[in-house]
Nucleic acid binder design. Structure first.
Lengths: 242, 242
DNA sequence: ACCTATTTGTGCGTATGTATT
DNA sequence: CAATACATACGCACAAATAGG
């Protein structure tokens, strides 16, 4: 019978009670241990764990093995401008943030239909795939996967490895300047592959930006898919430019 | 000892196995029952449930009590342009989609510091808050909250209620045209308040667009915060315009 | 209309593993 | 090393929704 006062399950009511305690300030930083919460609410420890799991999924709590369960403080999001001119380094330095890119890996792949259309190459044409991790103050901020035509940019990978900058690597390859043609944005849960690199929870949310850069003649230069941690970033679009 | 082959927990390996089966097409639409999966993988039913819960959080699966657990079909996302000229109705009709807005509620509120700065009014100044739900083919697509200065637009609420269009309501209020000054985008889990209106899972992800519209003289007209379901939308930004 | 089998959801008890203090 | 606290895993029981006879 389990003595349900209404149609709400016990773990939901425990979760609601904890959420209320946090909102009212009764619980400020750290939760009582699971066994104590179980006693206090008159439920099994598993039921408390179920409630904590739900609140963790909401992003409200964070459990650390051996230490305890803590209320998540949400720092203000970094503002990331998107527009015609997109330069990671410049954007960050405007906000007094020292950025750095890290090369994760590079590979040659064959263009599928979608990629071929974006980069204006034949289906099956060889592409360089460049995997990068953007780091700010030692904190991973975004993961990006860039695609370049091998035919047009045969040495782009080594150029990036040397300079650590897409802009400079493209200059070495004869592209003096480039601009963004289109940026498409959506959001998903982080892929398991990126969890370790981004040092985030396995159910974190990432903003996904799919973009195509073009040179001054309008020819596609790179197609890039960037994953930003949504709780650390806000993408800003200003028509006027700045 | 539980016979862990490596450092990965059993539920994770079951989850990985299920994910692989889906990717390879071995499982197409519906999963075998939990008890059968438990037998097949040599684990307890709870362990299978843990794996299914993780994959559900990823959006890959959907469990229905009494029926079974199903693979989520992901329909292609609707592309939503963001740029200087933002007109919900026009945007949707370009993709042969018939939109409609629904008035959820309206309220008078006092401007806090942030809102006051955005709308260029005094802190504490009265604002109209307009709550809307955008619906496409009977399917809820986005929830938005608009703020207008009461002083400048005393009758905006009734004008919207009559016309069902922000653009037309503003025209009635003497704003012949307007454009977007800035759009900021991030993502969060859906707020419990919006779950019912958006008819989504309680842990769904929403893209959040915070934007300010200005009239042709550059004066702020409205501040609007829109929540799009991330699995139904892709926001597109093209510098050139279209 | 009813009953039954199937399937997911909830809850408790117990034991053990692992990281932190 | 010991105590504490979260993580994983198994087993059992019953509730609730669904589907079919």
């Amino acid at each position: 019978m389990h003595a349900l006062d209404d149609g709400i399950s016990r773990w939901r009511r425990v979760a609601d009670a904890i959420r209320a305690d946090i909102a009212s300030g009764v619980i400020a930083k750290q939760l009582p241990p699971e066994v104590e919460l179980a006693e206090r609410h008159g439920v099994n420890r598993h039921t408390v764990r179920r409630a904590i799991a739900a609140l963790s999924t909401e992003g409200l709590l964070r459990a650390e093995r051996g230490r305890g369960t803590f209320v998540n403080a949400q720092p203000p999001r970094v503002i990331y401008p998107i527009g015609e001119r997109v330069r990671f380094r410049e954007n960050m330095m405007k906000q007094s943030i020292e950025p750095s890119g890290r090369l994760i890996g590079a590979e040659r792949v064959a263009a599928d239909a979608r990629q071929a259309a974006l980069l204006d190459v034949a289906v099956g044409a060889p592409l360089h795939r460049l995997e990068r991790l953007a780091v700010v103050d030692g904190m991973p901020m975004s993961r990006s996967t860039s695609l370049f035509s091998v035919q047009r940019f045969p040495d782009i990978i080594s150029a990036y490895a040397e300079t650590g900058s897409i802009t400079q690597a493209l200059q070495k390859s004869g592209v003096s300047d480039y601009r963004r043609r289109e940026t498409r944005i959506t959001a998903e849960r982080v892929s398991p592959n990126d969890v370790e690199l981004l040092q985030c929870a396995s159910d974190a949310i990432v903003l996904i930006s799919n973009a195509v850069d073009i040179d001054m003649e309008g020819n596609p230069v790179q197609s890039v898919r960037t994953r930003f941690l949504a709780d650390r970033f806000e993408l800003s679009f200003k028509p006027d430019a700045d």
